[in-house]
Amino acid sequence: MRTMLNTMASLKLTLAGLAALIVNSFAVSQWSDAALPWLVIPLTLLACNLLAALIVRHAFRQQGALLLFHVGLLAVLALVAAGVLLRFNGSVEVVEGTAFDPAGVTARGTGWLHPNRLQRVRFNQGPLEVRYLSGLRRDTTHSRIVLIREDGAEFDREIGDRQGFTSGGYRFITTFNKGYSVLLLWRDARGRETLGTVNFPSFPEFDWKQLNDWITPAGETLSLELKLAERIPEDSPWTLKSRDVRYEVGISGGAQADASVRPGESIAVAGGEITLVDLRLWMGYRIDYNPLLPWLLAAAFLSLGALAVHMAQKFRAPRATDVVPARGGEQAA
């Protein structure tokens, strides 16, 4: 047992593990998530190597700061691994004046042990603005939201590129992905009304393609096109917002002829009538869940502090009088 632990604690094994981690890190950067499992082998090897060294290397245990640094690294590794199992990454588009709907979330990465708590997330999207500098260079994002706590208390917040928010343990941050949305009122043949929104592609990135298909409650597929009356100024600052925008929506497809409607106007289609109510903006949020991040940060800083202390203990600044050049070298002033 002791022999096996000694072998396992070998520094040569550390070198092999580090070399493998270098190669596999490069592989991950080339083949993305598909190669992530490749990291598990060298990281497991290094973790076992370190644990064995902690047990059998007395000299290692005696160096407190060095020991703490390595234990901190083990903690970082364990927390990263646990974070991968618990994590959730996703995105969602939320329209001004509407509430966050978990059904609209697109998951991009879900850990095996992720406790799905998206139902606990409650917020309403308020007014949005994205400011641009001259030349259509994106400046700042301003998104007002109303956060609703579990006890029903509401908090008004402005978030943006530098400031996200957390609800139900999920962190939301704004992205560059945002655009226009139209609020439509559907009235069926019996007079029943349904209010809903149709989002158009990201704006101004796809300003030339503001099209989307919509299937009416009666089952008819319509093509909607947002037609903005004014072009974006290229040579002066501009703000993307939903207020004071002149627009109309082109409707085609289905049984009726192509038509355009302005705000407040209605158009009869198969099975009912559509009324264009309002223009809104939608904001694309990135969602992230990892409850272990504060612990990960603490472990990383603990490890870093221990490394700094170890280096300070190990090296002492060479005394000035020690430096004696043989010829042409520098002597301390």
């Binding site: 870093l304 490394l307 700094a308 280096m311 190990k314 090296f315 600044a317 060479p318 020690d322 430096v323 004696v324 050049p325 043989a326 010829r327 042409g328 070298g329």
Partner: peptide
């Protein structure tokens, strides 16, 4: 030409600080 021992120590000192 130089005091190699002192310079060698300086190399590892600065590299270690760089690592931190």
């Amino acid at each position: 030409l130089f005091d190699g021992g002192e310079m060698d120590a300086a190399v590892w000192l600065t590299l270690s600080l760089a690592f931190v």
